[in-house]
Nucleic acid binder design. Structure first.
Lengths: 336, 336
DNA sequence: CTGAAAGCGCTAACAT
DNA sequence: ATGTTAGCGCTTTCAG
């Protein structure tokens, strides 16, 4: 194997403990000794064996970020922020893919990786409040998104109702009256879709526009293909919508695709808006109006909360609510 | 702490070794004993402490996939495949972001994470052949992409010259004569861009089309914004191109954006093709013609090669060359 | 300020 | 088929 503390201790003519203290700085070390040790470390190219350290400390320095889809740009962008933040705090972040499967989310929740990671950031979509409440594992947990709410864990999520209301109000202000919502939850699960629909309805109510259930289209998943199919369905209606709010940017982009293919003008015939502000929407044709959550804040807060808990911070669970803002682009803009 | 082997051993009235063998199956265990041990494991909810196992075995079971950009869909899709493959082989895959920085690539190459990971899959873009040859670390290494070639390590990469040649030949076959290349390397580094330019030139030569250096546009990076700017430049030329091959799909999508904004017709006025086959290009407007590398094969081969080396496979370095194929979509299709 | 030594939980070599 | 035990490399008491 490689160079160990013992090698350094021998070379520098000191004890193991002293070398350890030079490395970790837990106790003061005399200047002369420190230099001798440091030289030995440099000469031999010592780096601590993390497995041994972890075994001894009972912690691994790893945390996991579990998301329903790795290839979803929203989560990729979030992961990017979270990885940097974790590194800055001395932790390594591991990505987990739950594939939006109940079993996977549950397993993680109950400590599937308990010996590998010190804590978990989970974006739950397939499990509900009861399952989180029934959790028995003690590993620190931070939830992101509004998939599960009102549980005794730290949580980081924007106000989805408000975000959705804002986007819908924008469509209303544009003079749209038949506003569809694409991306309702298939079964009845998927809490965050419910919240976004609630915001949508609130904005409709506020504008005195009657709610038409026929304009709310359920989708299996929340990808581009789902938006594409849902839009297809909407265009086949007797009275197609004049605007669409999609569950997220990805489904919105799918909708744009169908509209382009059908020859419908966007925004002239149909205005389209999404939620997430993924970079793809800044380059789509037309560019996509969206609600931008503060992804930086989400990623950083989630990691910070988790690390605080790992390092022993007590206190009641916190709910961090990062901000969001509407970004108007071509898909709801004036006619070109 | 949690439940340990010792607890199980006591509960089941057997030795540590026997429990270990039930868990790992290294030695046969009597059926009756096995059942007693298994019951104890289930009742106490035992899971092995990985740090201890790693310390003892001298391996961590972690491997890293280091890419220049986490938010690039190509790498996200690759990571998705690789994570699954690694899990299937009993390893956990860690994502590392080099941000295309020389220092980061070099550090990883030289064993920055040596005690955390058993092996590294690296997609080098900022370092060159010499730096890889000068490597002193002994940790197993697999390179992906053609950023560095002809080095004594396993490598997984498609034939970039051929891929690019194929795409260019397709544009030629469409009757295009002024074909631009967007995404040349800025400095002179970035080997894979060179290879793609070589393929582009070969196809031009084969068709008897003179090479026009003014149609090769360097870009800082290889993202959407870079394609957008490069296309802007091309449209400002006295004789703008009638086709564009982009370094990758992302830059191609940036080019599409500029073309849409300028009112140019795609493919009528300008045909556009990319390389990578990211899902985004299947939904862009117009949809993007691209060269699709076998990402599944790339991700799986890279992980398998690495794991083989970690587990002691010797032999000369292998070069795996997954296949690719052209996918014709609207951006080079007939006029709508 | 420094040293000695216990022990984290596991695997594997050696015994029975 | 099962048991005993050394030791992986580190941190952290307890002594000095």
């Amino acid at each position: 194997m490689g160079v160990s503390l013992k090698d350094i201790a021998e070379r520098a003519g000191v004890s193991l403990a002293t070398v350890s203290n030079v490395v970790n700085g837990y106790r003061p070390v005399g200047e002369v000794t420190r230099q001798r040790v440091q030289r030995a470390i440099d000469e031999l190219g010592y780096t601590p064996n993390l497995s041994a350290r972890h075994l001894r400390r009972g912690r691994t320095g790893l945390i996991a970020l579990a998301v329903p889809e790795l290839t979803n740009p929203y989560f990729a962008e979030l992961a990017d922020v979270a990885i940097r933040e974790a590194a800055g705090l001395g932790y390594t972040l591991l990505m987990e893919n739950t594939a939006a499967e109940r079993g996977a989310e549950l397993a993680l929740l109950e400590g599937a990786q308990r010996h590998l990671i010190d804590g978990l950031i989970l974006s739950p979509v397939a499990i509900g409040r009861e399952e989180v409440l029934a959790r028995r594992a003690r590993m620190p947990l931070v939830l992101i998104g509004e998939g599960v709410y009102d549980v005794p864990y730290d949580r980081v999520a924007i106000d989805n109702v408000a975000a959705s209301r804002t986007a819908t109000a924008h469509l209303v202000a544009l003079g749209r009256r038949r506003i569809a919502f694409v991306g309702a939850p298939p079964g009845g699960d998927r809490q965050s879709a419910h919240l976004r629909i609630r915001g949508y309805r609130e904005a409709l109510d506020a504008a005195g526009i009657p709610f038409d259930p026929g304009l709310v289209v359920p989708t299996e998943q929340f990808g581009r293909a789902d938006g594409e199919h849902a839009m297809h369905h909407l265009l086949s209606l007797d009275h197609p919508p004049d605007a669409v709010l999609a569950y997220n940017d990805l489904t919105a982009i799918g909708a744009l695709r169908t509209l382009a293919r059908s020859g419908a003008g966007v925004p002239d015939d149909v205005a389209v808006a999404g939620i997430d502000d993924i970079e793809e929407g800044r380059f789509s044709n037309p560019t996509l109006t969206t609600v931008a959550p503060d992804k930086r804040a989400i990623g950083r807060s989630a990691v910070r909360r988790l690390v605080s808990r790992i390092e022993g911070e007590g206190g009641p669970p916190m709910h961090v609510q990062p901000s969001f803002h509407l970004i108007e682009r071509e898909s709801t803009g004036p006619a070109r």
